[in-house]
Design a protein around this nucleic acid. Structure first.
Lengths: 246, 246
DNA sequence: CACGTTCTACCATTGAATGGAAGGTACCGA
DNA sequence: TCGGTACCTTCCATTCAATGGTAGAACGTG
């Protein structure tokens, strides 16, 4: 026994500690954290204490561990999506005002759409699609809008490895969706979380003609009017793209 | 020379790498990063590569280093301020709709107010007070609102160490501000970034009667109407506090 | 084409990280 | 009141992972 019996580096462990928090959980007991991260308690304790001395974690009195405010601050100040979000925010507010629907902004990460910003429909009670949430490409309008405007190579690679865990969707179906989205310039899809809602998303293209994000809305089926929604979204998306430069 | 000639641990270095990004800067060259973090280039390179393999950083082709999307995702999913922001968001939108002013939400971290959420006034061009920004307690209405409702001990400790770098404000002046804020139940202060604006903030109190946040607005001097602003803020703040529980 | 700059890879050296064990502390139910 | 359990925290001899000087590769530039 010495520098890690399990053969992982300090960096590995730091990552595992941060990753150990289940989605939406903000605090964990030290023992549970050590357990989840697969680190011996004494090592976990030392590591957590070190990190909390730097403010990346917050080790409370009874062994309660939270992510540190300082970490949140650093990440949000220097976030890779900072410029995107700043450029998009005013346009997203426009959409929110004009259409009065839930508006969201997503980027592609791996084979998933990662939602980086969101504005709720005024008066809406629950806002399901949380910020920093993920959705697989093939079951989100944002994902389809993003993927349908990527390079042929990336799309091929995506379709190559595609496999729907539930077995409901085949690669051919997805291929069809992507082709349709590429042709129309927007993607639409029946809501997954809520069957009575539809998602519509359009690509956001930067100065280099690269699709860097998708701007979308989630609307109740009853209010689904493509003729009204798509032009508004496309206009806003073009505005965002112009702000981005690059 | 061996495990760090400078005598710092791996954890120290991981922290310094993340902290190396200046405010608002999203990408850094490897050499500059190593320089800023005070780490030998070869070590920095190895460390960055390890972190980027886990997605905490993103090491681009030409040695361009960014914070990783995964880090942003993890931090925002499990942020210590998640519950607070979720509880506050609807009320902040109410304020935005009713008063049509910049609305912000801050927590106390050290002797500074850390802004954790923000909604811009509709139609406002520049949104100065960035999210994840900090302001010293004594020159922000949010800071004063927060500090004025902390325990006597903490306030004493704060005033004890207080020193204004610019030398314009004395501890006695701050003491007076705090007393006033505590008495009135809100804090007001002339804008620091912009002399023609005023900040007004009220404390957000959770179920345990602990002041956990401050809800505030920034208004142009011409639209400064305490009679209208304070009751609205206080009502929203009580609503947030009720949602919080604890 | 030579020079400066930056990124990347290698590898012998060594002290920082490891984790079992033992000491605290708080809480519970009998 | 008292044993029992379940945490958190500290200690310290062992040892292997991290270190960083060095050198090569890949640029761009005057």
């Amino acid at each position: 026994m010495a520098n890690s019996a399990s053969g992982d580096s300090v960096v590995d462990r730091v990552v595992r500690v941060i990753e150990a928090f289940p989605e939406g959980v903000t605090s964990l007991q030290l023992t549970e954290l050590a357990d989840r991260a697969g680190i011996p308690l004494s090592s976990a304790h030392r590591l957590v204490r070190q990190l909390s001395e730097h403010g990346l974690l917050d080790l409370g009195v009874g062994g309660t561990v939270r992510l540190g405010l300082r970490l949140w601050e650093l990440v949000n100040r220097n976030s890779p999506t900072l410029a995107l979000r700043q450029a998009a925010m005013p346009f997203m507010e426009d959409i929110q005002q004009v259409l009065n629907q839930n508006v969201n902004l997503a980027v592609l990460d791996g084979w998933e759409a990662l939602f980086v910003e969101r504005l709720s429909r005024r008066g809406s009670v629950a806002n399901r699609a949380r910020i920093a949430g993920r959705m697989p490409v093939h079951i989100s309008s944002a994902g389809l809008a993003l993927m349908s405007h990527q390079s042929r190579e990336l799309q091929a690679e995506y379709l190559e490895q595609f496999q729907d865990p539930s077995g409901k969707v085949t690669a051919d179906v997805v291929r069809h969706f992507l082709a349709e989205a590429a042709q129309h310039g927007y993607a639409q899809l029946a809501g997954v979380v809520d069957p009575d809602t539809w998602g519509i998303a359009v690509p956001v293209v930067n100065g280099k003609r690269r699709t860097v994000a998708a701007l979308g809305v989630v609307v109740p089926l009853a209010e689904m009017r493509l003729q009204a929604l798509v032009p508004a979204l496309q206009t806003a998306a073009r505005g965002i793209g112009r702000q981005l430069g690059d």
